Simulated scan of single mutants.
Amino acid sequence: MACFTVPLAEALAVTAVKHFTCRKTLKDAAAFKEKVSVLQKMLFGGSFLLAAEHVYHGEVVFYPPFLTAMENSEATAEMLHEMATVGAGMAVLTTAVWALGLGISALVKRIGLRKQTGAV
């Protein structure tokens, strides 16, 4: 129902961190900004697709209260439970996949550097 709001909130938090961190002078500010931008795109993209799917199924509407689950208390409780379980799970999994990608990228880079220097 509203599970897409959790990754969206994380995407907004990542955007704020990127904005304020990259304003300061960092050694690797460009590299950091590029890596965080990938996470931003993953979170915003996933949230957008989920929101579109929820609009298609009539769970999100363009008039107040916007989320149909907020019309009664039972549905609101179910929505909050879904946000806490499914939404948080999606946000954590997306971040974990991003971190795994960074780790694999660093490993491949390290192996490539070792092969170039001849130290295997």
Rank of each mutant, 00 (worst) to 15 (best):
K33W: 11
W98M: 02
T95K: 04
T76D: 13
A96P: 07
L80E: 05
S37C: 09
A16M: 10
K18G: 12
A99E: 04
K24S: 14
A75P: 08
L50D: 04
K24T: 14
A99S: 07
F62A: 04
H19G: 09
L50N: 01
L67S: 00
F66L: 08
G58Y: 12
R23L: 13
V17N: 06
A51P: 06
A9D: 05
S37H: 08
L100D: 05
K35D: 11
G87P: 00
F32V: 00
L49V: 07
V36I: 11
V14F: 05
S37A: 09
E59G: 00
M42K: 06
H54V: 13
T21F: 11
A29K: 13
C22W: 03
L80T: 09
L39R: 01
V55D: 04
M70T: 06
A99T: 02
T21G: 04
E71Y: 15
M90F: 15
A91C: 12
F20H: 11
C22Q: 09
E74Y: 15
M42E: 06
M79W: 08
L26W: 05
A11V: 06
A51R: 07
V92R: 07
G101I: 02
A31N: 10
A77K: 15
E53I: 03
A9F: 15
M42Y: 04
M70I: 09
A9I: 15
T76N: 11
Y63T: 10
K27G: 04
V38I: 10
A52R: 05
V14H: 01
L43F: 00
V14R: 00
L50R: 06
L8I: 12
A84V: 07
A75W: 14
H54M: 14
M70K: 11
Y63N: 00
K41E: 11
V92T: 11
V60N: 00
G89E: 05
T68S: 12
T85Y: 09
S37T: 08
V92L: 13
G45L: 02
V92I: 14
A77Y: 13
V86R: 14
E10S: 14
F48G: 02
L43P: 02
A96H: 03
A96W: 05
A13D: 03
T21C: 10
K35H: 06
A77R: 15
T95M: 06
A29P: 08
V36A: 10
A11D: 02
L39F: 04
R23I: 10
L8R: 02
F32I: 01
G45M: 04
A69H: 11
D28I: 07
L26A: 03
H54N: 13
E53Q: 10
V60C: 01
A29C: 15
T85F: 07
A75L: 15
H81E: 09
L67F: 12
A88F: 15
A16C: 12
M79T: 10
V36S: 03
